[in-house]
Nucleic acid binder design. Structure first.
Lengths: 344, 344
DNA sequence: CTGAAAGCGCTTACAG
DNA sequence: CTGAAAGCGCTTACAG
């Protein structure tokens, strides 16, 4: 059955399409009587405006795009949830694409969203991405875009992030505060800014406390699907390499949980022999034994904040105001649990 | 800067919009020379068709909608990943909405998608949903719709599911095969069809093996965010209620992992004293100790299959063919690990 | 091989 | 208070 149009309503009431349109939108220059008549018939016929026509006229689709490195990931799926919730509240729908941590996909998806003429774009970069032309193209086209979590610092747009360096500093400082002297770090792969920043925070905390930095205490893991195993492997290797480590700051909870499982297996007592701090506050971290001290990374709030900023910029653009780029840094928090010693 | 239109290209070349449009789409009745000219200028000007106008003309948006109970969930996020991957391959974008297991949200979201005039809809029902009018309305409007995983059997449309009853039967049969005689079941809440079917599969396996069904061996958990704790609680309660249980079939891996953690804590040996089979094959299940025997629930394949079927129906509708509803049942598989005894 | 014209369904400036 | 008309940017049946 064919959808009902304004024309159908106009025909049935013997009035013009113009008046029907205005009546439905409560224009002040339509008589109350006509409005009532139109609205009643619209309800009866279950009239829904044709979104395609409205989009073409208004040049906006009330749809935004999201490009994310991976969906199946606790932190990112929380971000998605936050974005969708906030978007829905403002009457926007969200198209989601996954780059799979690949630059070529990310670029292609950005193109798809631009061609679809979404009203705005939210993006967290692939580990792969080192060239930013595709991002600058979006900005040059005056399309509102917000970067979050995995960002390119040099691209001129709004960003929502956590202070990875400070959070890592806090994590390391906590280990120092409870008395650790030889502190290892399991870091992420070399490229993404996050793992660099977390490493820098770790190193700065050591420096500020006059603890010598020892590169042999830093273990790298790629943090892909194998992170749990990488945690186990690094823990095993650490025990072979060093016998004096009393604390580890680990880049991601899943890796930390792998490490804990290996230490448990080998009879290393946590936190008595080695204290461990993770990063992200995954829901399993409060559940495992011993529960994991970690940095809470607020995914849901990040998602909300990302959409809110995008919405603000869409409004500014519509009103021809100057778009006001923001760098929003969300607070993180150290959650102390049983994998680190209590007090000193 | 204003986007380039067909009119712009036509003006610059001194030809008509019609010819430009046809040239870009490689109509056979345009000269090779004109085509070359048009295409070159289109590339130079970086022309992109206005999707809004194309949508209005063609009455399709190459966009589909997905309504899912929860995003932050291993199984569902895998389904999403599968859907997006398959959609992208066919040139479709996916709008995602989350019902949060609430009927009112689900209904509202379905409306949003219909008003947006997406080309098709994929939906997995909220636990809440008992009235199906909103679903039948979609079908009455001739909008292709696929239900998956959490479906309403009585709604007349294509469905992609696993055979929950058979999978649960297999899980229970496995426990019986390795010698278990008193088999408990931790089931999901009473409403969703899945947990009913899994319960029925459990009961049928008992019957077929002449093992008396004992209602006191069935424990319910709501399976929301607290599932891990519910697993612990049910395990604790089970030990108080019964001292002869030698096997448990558990509705969801996370609950099973909670139960294992409780049994570990209380010194109950798994699988020597109690064998455990879970359901879903969550990635943590192969990692914990002891690793969990479980039913593999193929989320990624389900996502792919859901979009493929939707695509097929969209094509059938476009060609005015009869839409051919399918009920697709994906195979599940018992993955044996260390939480159940080897052989008898 | 090319183009004028109609139309998708809406919105809104303008005239009466 | 109402409506004729233009236009958003495309596609396509039709004429020449």
């Amino acid at each position: 059955m064919k959808p009902v149009t304004l024309q159908d309503i106009a025909d049935q009431l013997g009035i013009s399409v113009t008046t029907v349109s205005k009546a439905l939108k409560d224009y002040p220059d339509v008589s109350a009587k006509t409005k009532a008549l139109v609205k009643e018939l619209a309800t009866t016929l279950n009239y829904k405006p044709n979104a395609f026509a409205v989009n073409l006229r208004t040049k906006e689709s009330k749809t935004v795009g999201l490009i994310i490195p991976v969906i199946v990931h606790h932190f990112f799926s929380n971000v998605i949830k936050g974005i969708i919730a906030e978007a829905e509240a403002k009457g926007y729908l969200v198209i989601i694409l996954q780059s799979n941590e690949r630059y070529d996909m990310e670029k292609k998806h950005l193109d798809l969203l631009m061609n679809q003429r979404v009203d705005g774009i939210m993006i967290s970069l692939a580990n792969d991405t080192v060239d930013f032309k595709h991002l600058n193209d979006v900005i040059a086209a005056d399309k509102p875009m917000i970067m979050f979590d995995k960002i390119a610092k040099t691209v001129n747009c709004s960003k929502v992030i956590i202070d990875d360096r400070q959070a890592a500093y806090d994590a390391t400082q906590h280990l120092i505060d409870i008395g650790c002297q030889r502190i290892a770090h399991f870091r992420g792969s070399l490229l993404p800014q996050n793992s660099i920043d977390r490493f820098l925070g770790y190193r700065k905390a050591l420096r500020d406390n006059d603890i010598p930095y020892d590169a042999s205490l830093v273990y790298i893991c790629e943090c892909d699907d194998l992170s749990f195993e990488e945690g186990q492997n690094n823990a095993r290797q650490l025990l072979l390499d060093h016998n004096d480590v009393d604390g580890i700051f680990i880049n991601t909870d899943l890796v930390a949980i792998g490490a804990i499982s290996e230490f448990n297996k080998q009879g290393i007592k946590i936190p008595e022999q080695i204290s461990i701090v993770g990063f992200s506050n995954w829901f399993m971290s409060s559940i495992i034994s011993p529960s994991l001290t970690t940095i809470d990374q607020p995914g849901l709030e990040m998602g909300r904040s990302v959409f809110k900023q995008l919405y603000k910029e869409i409004q500014q653009l519509k009103r021809d105001e100057k778009v006001d780029y923001q760098q929003i840094v969300l607070p993180t928090q150290l959650i102390q649990r049983d994998s680190t010693l209590k007090v000193k």
